[in-house]
């Protein structure tokens, strides 16, 4: 009896990894050449920004909230990365226009060209996220509404920074993202590092337990003397931090920015968390599962295109994969309860 309970639980924990393996096997069957160094590089490199965005979403979901602005926030970071972070204020299109019209001198002073401006703006972005956490906690606002509003703010800011697609990603991010590591493709190493780092941070540290507890039983955490306000701010700031990494890694891959670059990330990140074994309430999350979920979603896209499924059906098919995995999990949960 005891054994079967254990196996149900391990089965549920293994489900994300198993679905990833099934998908990999299917891809290998359809397109053997994809399972190679180059193949993994191509299929998985866009999974890195999605994995970061998924971890960011997971932080918010941990405290029973939902972030509908992560996609546009990632786009905003990408726009900042392609302008301020590479060439300072002088890299902004409207400054260049002013230079062209002669209102500003052709050579700008040091302060206008320093990438520090980009660092500052990105830090402010994280700060805004922390403040959002505080606002949601203090006024007891529904996070869906607040972040939905913020999604328009981020999009508007990105369009202000970069009215038409363009800019140039900083060289160091570009070379990092296209790093050719020996033997194991860089995206796989990056995914493992992200998963392990997030796992240690949230699952292994003592404050991590408090953070998760704030989602599971906030009253108990409060009675134990922890400030729920600080917890929310910390979790939202973490989300802003990982969202920033998502935007920077994305702009490193695309090499230039576009305000609309990551609109899909909002839904992808939520799907990634759920696919990876997380749940919407109760602080029940899994950072390793989330990264696997992000990889699964990315590979599902490749799989469907290798299958030659017409694009009109691809979104539906992606949804179907999600539903199948969720249905399997419910089945396992039910088996667990029935013991």
């Amino acid at each position: 009896m005891n054994g079967s309970v254990l196996s149900a639980r391990t089965l549920r924990n293994l489900l994300p990894a198993l679905s990833l393996l099934v998908l990999l096997a299917a891809i290998f069957y359809l397109q053997p050449r994809a399972i190679s160094y180059v193949g993994f590089n191509l299929m998985l490199n866009l999974a890195i920004p999605i994995a970061f965005a998924t971890i960011a979403q997971m932080c918010v979901i941990t405290v029973n909230d939902l972030d509908l602005s992560i996609g546009t926030y990632v786009g905003f970071v990408a726009c900042i990365g392609a302008t301020l972070l590479s060439g300072g204020i002088g890299a902004l299109p409207f400054i260049k226009d002013l230079q062209a019209s002669g209102a500003l001198p052709a050579t700008l002073p040091w302060i206008m060209n320093t990438p520090l401006a980009g660092v500052l703006v990105l830090l402010m972005g994280i700060g805004v996220y922390a403040l959002l956490g505080a606002l949601i906690h203090l006024r007891n606002l529904p996070s869906i509404v607040v972040t939905l509003g913020m999604s328009f703010v981020w999009l508007g800011l990105s369009v202000l920074v970069l009215p038409v697609p363009g800019g140039q990603a900083p060289g160091w991010i570009k070379s990092l993202m296209t790093l050719k590591t020996p033997f194991i493709p860089f995206p796989i190493i990056a995914a493992v590092v992200i998963a392990v780092a997030a796992h240690i941070l949230i699952m292994k540290t003592s404050y991590g337990a408090v953070l998760r507890g704030a989602g599971g039983n906030p009253k108990a955490i409060e009675r134990a003397g922890w400030s729920l306000l600080k917890v929310k701010m910390a979790m939202f700031a973490l989300a802003g931090f990982f969202g920033m990494l998502a935007g920077l890694s994305l702009v490193g891959l695309t090499t230039s920015g576009d305000a609309n670059i990551a609109l899909r990330y909002t839904l992808l990140s939520i799907a990634g968390v759920i696919l990876g074994g997380g749940e919407f309430v109760g602080g029940r999350i899994s950072p390793i599962g989330a990264v696997i979920g992000a990889a699964t979603l990315t590979l599902a896209g490749s799989f469907l295109s290798f299958m030659r499924i017409p694009p009109d059906w691809q979104i539906g098919a992606q949804g179907a994969i999600l539903i199948i995995v969720l249905a399997l999990r419910t089945l396992i949960d039910r088996a667990e309860k029935r013991r």
């Binding site: 193949g39 191509l42 490199n45 899909r264 295109s305």
Partner: peptide, 23 residues
Amino acid sequence: PFTTAENQVTEQAAQIQNLVLQG
């Protein structure tokens, strides 16, 4: 011919990478 389901940069980038893998 391949058309992306949504008019999105990241989707088309992934599409191009898949086309490379498809040979």
